[in-house]
């Protein structure tokens, strides 16, 4: 294989995942949180593809495609919720959206 070895991709994936996680934890707008979740999913995809290349089998790529489909579905539902919130003129701030408080 040409270029960097697999561990480079693994480290990159980890960095991406951490970035996405920080975005989920530290941002207030649900839109940005959703985008950060996308980053995390993509980092997982990268890892899958990398290991698929390592083992010489495409199963990892199949998994990655399924992840993409699921991510798309989840974005649909998440955006639907956000649009519903926006229509009711509720402030898009997860600090204020506390009805799940136990």
């Amino acid at each position: 294989m040409r270029g960097p070895d697999i561990q480079w991709y693994v480290v990159l994936s980890a960095l991406l995942f951490t970035t996405g996680a920080l975005g989920v934890l530290l941002r207030r707008s649900p839109l940005i949180i959703l985008l950060s979740v996308e980053i995390m999913l993509n980092s997982a995809n990268l890892l899958l593809i990398a290991f698929s290349r390592l083992h010489g089998r495409e199963d990892g790529q199949i998994f990655a495609i399924s992840v993409m489909a699921v991510a798309a579905s989840e974005v649909v539902v998440g955006l639907g919720l956000i649009v519903a919130l926006g229509r009711r003129h509720i402030e898009l701030d997860v600090d204020k959206l506390r009805t799940l408080r136990g």
Binding site: G3, I49, R53, Q61
Partner: peptide, 10 residues
């Protein structure tokens, strides 16, 4: 990066 890993379809 996917292309570099030979995952063209993906």
């Amino acid at each position: 990066l996917f292309l570099l890993l030979s995952g063209e379809f993906v």
